[in-house]
Amino acid sequence: MKIELVNRPGNTAAKVTLAAGETCTAEAGAMIAMSGHMNITTTTHKKGAGGIFKAAKRMLSGESFFLNHFDPKDKEGELWLGSSLAGDMLALTLDNENLIVQSGSFLASEESVDMDMGWQGFKSLLSGESMFWLNLKGRGQVVLSSFGAIYPIEVDGDYIVDTGHIVAFNETLDFTITKAGSSWLQSFLGGEGLVCKFSGKGTVWCQSHNANSFGHALTPKLRKA
């Protein structure tokens, strides 16, 4: 599976080239174009191992109930993927490691990558992200999408990320919900409110923009339904 990201970071699209026999799993609704001979299978979970419960969990986490599996049958084929919000994408290769992904950010993965919902505790409710997080593990490539540009931060010690800006992080990192700076009052008065504090050693990928902030700028100008 070959991944090429084009038109970054404004309106990124991912071109996925699949060799015969390879399968790419993508979020429902992510396909924008593909070769005519591409075969699509829709399941509730991993190909060949559907699970209503896992699908229901995925739906709770803001992802769709179904996943699409694309395979080009006996000859090479290509597949174009896009996301609904304008923004950047990130292609990562997992090498037997665990990646925790903010669930709305998942776009596609290789068949060899296993996917499950992770429960990060009640702190997730306060993190501005959804309650469940995707847990990707195994070997293979994954594509994530974001609202805005994506920038990586190498954490060694403590680092603070504002709620709503997390795309993904290595499982070697742990986060707690806390305040920005040393005082709760200052953090709330300053509009930062709750933030996520990452500790340990690893990488956290952040998105430069927060869909909620954009929503707040736009909503007052929209007509009431």
Binding site: G157, D162, S213
Partner: peptide
């Protein structure tokens, strides 16, 4: 501006 910080080193101090 309020809420302009998206990420920062944990040692940075904030005063509103």
């Amino acid at each position: 501006e309020s809420d302009a910080m998206s990420s920062m080193d944990a040692d940075i101090e904030l005063k509103a």
